[in-house]
Write a protein that binds this DNA or RNA. Structure first.
Length: 801
DNA sequence: GTAGGCTTGCGGCAA
DNA sequence: GCAAGCCTAC
């Protein structure tokens, strides 16, 4: 909450207006734009759809457009609503506008993600939707715990109906803008025997009592707010003269409704709504995105102008050819043809067949080292995978090679256990009634407050109708708790009182919205970062990790430090907490030169000189699961994902396909992806590895393409690898226990033949060492270990010595 | 109440 | 292959 909007409505000397000449014919910022880009910038009035292909300067158009609106004084910064999906995109946009117009960006309070703007709107009008303006925003973890409680209370078996699943379903409904009563009959029966509306409603009620929202609510409640309070909506109609949306193809129904309400200030043909996107890069269908939104834009806003940006400034023509040829297989698209602006046709796209994922990683590693010797920076190379488990092979290989790499989009910083715990402490200091935070940390670090004690607390809180903290305060005065627990809780409460007091000494917050802050008047006795440090130390939380001997403990302590340090940037504790609940990304150390490894999804919007696309196999890519769930639409989405991958490359593109892949712990022989057949022969070079194993081309039956050369099993190869492949293929068909080199791979193998071991036999166990078998029941062995004593272990855990 | 061992299940992942 | 969650034994 950096800027204060009202202040910016007043003209400010020397800010925006004086930056760019006085109405000179072609301002600087228009120079260097091509015709279509310029058109998109200058068409400020009326609905506009900018179809921006990959690498066509989409962000540049958006930012220049905002600069233009500001420069030509069509609107003040506070009168432009500009929404993105990710914080990263919002931040980048802010930076780039800043570079164009100078200090004026500071005054763009309505530039942000859908959710942060939604939260901002809700805080202003919280009372109209039954919340207080200091409501907390729950993340997925809190949500799950809350649902677990509800399911338990409703006597629903959590094993049969997992909370996670319900959370996912709820997410879907909220993405579609559905309230409990709107859930379709078909969906209702999908969980807990039709008790869905009831549970969903209970969940919503519970959120309200907790003075909390989840992410979905940030939009859903806005929609409710606007529908029920036309005067409030009208206020925003007056305020927002221009609305811009980035990555429109990713918008879901709720976001669409939200935007439509806000754009309704004028009749549809005159709405100043500009959406930018690429239907070919819509890859978030599984998250509720509706490609239909962008495909339908012209119908929704009759008279909308459509501008296509088709000149690509990123990739060589061979790369573009490959990408365009592939995406042309999709039926539902608006259709664009990218033209390269890069002179040379460049290298051919190389497609390589390898034996398995390890060889794939070896190959990629070698190539990277070779490029590096040629002088390429590691930063200019990336490996884009379909599924995150593919990353492991590359990481392992790169570690042995000593090749610097970074994984992008691993477990997010704020989702880490230690960070969440620390945040729970801070949330509780800031708001003692935050029950979810309380539950999280009562017994972390271990204080001897187990389930039974907690149950007493819950009961008391429910009886009194108060929060857990309040309930504890009364409980410790009674005899209900055991003396030990009572003392512990009393001490804990005293600590929180103490911390809360220290927090009070830190300048007040939140009142920012309407009151002008008097800078420099309040003196800080304790900065909130210091306070956080004290809380973590005094609560014993830091100590808990210091005593932890496990490998991760050190990293966790690092993360805690990083968390505390990052607090320095914020004016207040609650400001910090708000930021954290909405923001996911941590600053990735861009400093070192390193190869990037990430999923295709997280690669959207990025570009690299050299891109490796491993794992182009049926089942993995396109993902079998997507095909099963969403059929043809799913296939098209996978194809768009392939398109995104291909278009990330500027100069060099390497696609690979493995003949064997380990899936769910089983080796499976793989069929080359149908997407390989969709690459144009003229732009592609096929390379076989000629490795010791295999080398029989792609084989498979991907539908009569060039890659469908030979039947892989109709060959004379007699190498060990080949034998294995054959053994596997037949064992898969027979559905018997799967073996590789004699190792049992499949589980629960108890086929009546008994064990391959005998009683009395000496065996070896990875953890327990050597021992003698005492008893055999199916695949379970009772073993007397020489060091570890008697244990029952699964047969697959031991080996012959 | 906790630790360790086994079972199970498995996609992409913003806010 | 691996992690999260469950169950059992202390």
């Amino acid at each position: 909450m950096a800027a204060e909007p009202q202040r910016l409505d007043r003209p400010q000397a020397g800010s925006i207006t004086s930056q760019f000449g006085r109405g000179a014919a072609a301002p600087d910022y228009l120079k260097g734009l091509n015709e279509e880009q310029r058109d998109a910038v200058l068409t400020t009035e009326g609905p506009l759809l900018v179809l921006a292909g990959a690498g066509t300067g989409k962000t540049r158009v958006l930012t220049t457009r905002i600069a233009h609106i500001l420069n030509s004084k069509k609107a003040w910064p506070s009168e432009i609503l500009s929404v993105t999906f990710t914080n990263k995109a919002a931040r980048e946009m802010k930076e780039r506008i800043g570079a164009l117009v100078g200090a004026g960006v500071e005054g763009m309070p309505w530039l942000g993600t859908f959710h942060s703007i939604g939260a901002r709107l809700l805080r202003r009008h919280a009372e109209l939707v039954g919340l207080r303006s200091d409501f907390t925003i729950l993340d997925t973890d809190d949500q799950i715990r809350l649902i677990k409680q509800l399911l338990e209370a409703a006597n629903i078996d959590e094993k049969r109906w997992p909370a996670r699943q319900f959370a996912g379903m709820m997410d879907n409904w909220k993405n579609r803008g559905q309230l409990p009563t709107d859930v379709s009959m078909a969906d209702r029966s999908a969980f807990a025997n039709g008790r869905i509306p009831e549970l969903y409603q209970q969940y919503q009620d519970r959120l309200k009592t907790l003075n909390a929202t989840d992410f979905g609510d940030l939009l859903l409640l806005c929609i409710k707010l606007f529908r029920e309070n036309p005067d409030v909506l009208a206020e925003y109609h007056r305020r927002f003269k221009y609305i811009l949306v980035d990555e429109y193809q990713d918008s879901n129904v709720a976001q669409y409704l939200w935007l439509r309400l806000l754009a309704q200030g004028k009749p549809a043909p005159e709405a100043n709504l500009c959406v930018v996107g690429d239907d070919d890069q819509s890859i978030y269908g599984w998250r509720g995105a509706e490609v239909d939104n962008i495909l339908r834009f012209e119908k929704d806003f009759p008279g909308a102008k459509v501008i296509r940006l088709e000149r690509n400034y990123r990739s060589t023509s061979n790369i573009l050819k490959a990408a365009s040829h592939l995406i042309a297989n999709n039926e539902s698209r608006l259709g664009k043809t990218l033209q390269t602006d890069v002179g040379e046709p460049g290298e051919l796209v190389m497609v390589t067949s390898v034996w398995d994922s390890d060889e794939e990683a070896r190959q990629v590693g070698e190539e990277i080292e070779q490029f590096q010797r040629q002088g390429d920076a590691l930063n200019s190379m990336a490996i884009l995978v379909r599924a995150s488990h593919q990353m492991r092979a590359f990481e392992e290989r790169f570690i042995t090679l000593g090749l610097n790499y970074r994984v992008i989009g691993g477990p997010r910083f704020y989702e880490r256990k230690e960070v969440r715990d620390a945040l729970a402490y801070l949330r509780l200091v800031s708001n003692p009634n935050d029950d979810l935070a309380f539950e999280r940390i009562v017994n972390t670090p271990k204080r001897g407050l187990g389930d039974s004690t907690l149950q007493i607390l819950y009961d008391a809180a429910r009886r009194q109708g108060t929060s857990l903290t309040t309930a504890v305060r009364t409980l410790v005065e009674t005899e209900e708790l055991k003396p030990k627990q009572r003392t512990t809780l009393r001490q804990l409460m005293d600590q929180f009182d103490d911390w809360a007091q220290r927090a009070q000494a830190v300048p007040p917050e939140d009142a920012v919205e309407t009151e002008e802050l008097a800078p420099g008047i309040v003196r800080r006795h304790t900065s909130h970062a210091d306070l956080a440090r004290q809380v973590l130390d005094e609560s014993g939380y830091t100590e808990m990790w210091q005593n932890d001997k496990s490998a991760e403990a050190e990293g966790r302590l690092e993360n805690l430090k990083e968390l505390v340090n990052s607090m320095e940037e914020f004016d207040s504790l609650s400001g910090f907490l708000e930021h954290v609940s909405l923001v996911m990304d941590r600053d990735t150390g861009e400093a070192d030169d390193a190869v990037s490894i990430m999923t295709l999804h997280s690669a959207k919007g990025l570009e690299f000189e050299t891109v490796f696309l491993p794992g182009w196999e049926e089942g993995l890519f396109p993902s079998q699961r997507t095909l099963d769930e969403s059929g043809r639409a799913g296939l098209e989405e996978e194809r768009r994902l392939a398109y995104v991958g291909l278009t990330r490359a500027r100069k060099r593109l390497r696609v690979s396909v493995a003949q064997n892949r380990l899936t769910h712990g089983l080796w499976q022989s793989a069929i080359p992806s149908r997407f390989l057949d969709e690459l144009p022969a003229a732009a592609v070079e096929v390379k076989d590895t000629g490795s010791a194993y295999g080398g029989y081309g792609y084989g498979g039956r991907s539908g009569g393409g060039r890659f469908d050369t030979r039947d892989p099993f109709d060959s004379l190869y007699e190498t060990p690898g080949w034998q294995r492949a054959r053994a596997q293929a037949s064992s898969r068909k027979s559905a018997g226990p799967v073996t590789i080199d004699g190792d049992l791979v499949a589980r629960s193998v108890d086929d009546g033949r008994g064990s391959k071991y005998d009683v009395g036999e000496r065996v070896f166990h990875l953890k327990f060492g050597y021992g003698r078998i005492e008893q055999i029941e199916g695949n379970k062995l009772t073993i007397e270990f020489e060091k570890a004593g008697r244990k029952k272990v699964l047969e697959s855990f031991v080996q012959k010595p």
